[in-house]
Every structure is written in C-alpha cells, then in structure tokens.
C-alpha cells in the first residue's frame, strides 16, 4: 500500500493570521486525494480554514543522534532572550 499510497504530512491553519501547524499524516495516492483525506480526518470539528499537505518524503529532519551538538550549545546563552531591556512606559504593551 505504501508504494501506491505514500504518506503525506498535514498542516492546518486554525484561523487567519496564525501559522499552519502540523497535525498528523494521511495515506493518499496523490496530492488532491491527500487534501480530501486531510479534510475528512483532521477538520471534523472546525479545526481550521486552510490545509497544507506535503509528501512526507520531502521533509528532511534533523538527526536525533546529533541532538547534543545541534541543540545543547544554546542552553547557556540566556542573553539571546530579549529579557534584559527596560521598556519605556510610553511604548506600552510590546
């Protein structure tokens, strides 16, 4: 089945102005049927107003084995977070 019905990753945008968010995957023969399948599986309760489907094979993922070198070096660089600035009163909510 996986040859004729490859896997597609499904992304849904819950509302205008928000980003599409990964919600899961479907099997489908092509992009058109994948969109229908995503609609039928993932938007049954009004979850969104836009759907993207992407062939799972098109996604290049980071290697969990390299997680230490990829992600750990950021751990001690708290100065990258914008929490050290005094915001003038006049600016209000930022």
């Amino acid at each position: 089945m996986t040859d004729e019905m490859p896997l597609w990753e499904v992304f849904i945008r819950p509302r205008n102005g928000l980003a599409h968010k990964h919600v899961g995957s479907v099997h489908a023969a092509d992009a058109t049927l994948a969109l229908d399948a995503a609609r039928d599986v993932y938007t049954r309760r009004g979850e969104g107003n836009s759907i993207w489907v992407v062939p799972s094979a098109a996604i290049t993922a980071s290697d969990p084995e390299h997680a230490d070198e990829t992600f750990d070096p950021t751990a001690d660089k708290i100065y990258r977070h914008p929490t050290f600035y005094e915001i003038p009163e006049d600016v209000g909510h930022m």
């Binding site: 479907v26 099997h27 039928d40």
Partner: peptide, 11 residues
Amino acid sequence: PILEEDLALTN
C-alpha cells in the same frame, strides 16, 4: 479500504 475513506464515507 483505508482509514481515511472510512472517515470520509461516514462524514
């Protein structure tokens, strides 16, 4: 035949 269609048909 597939889960996706099971839901589509019942939808």
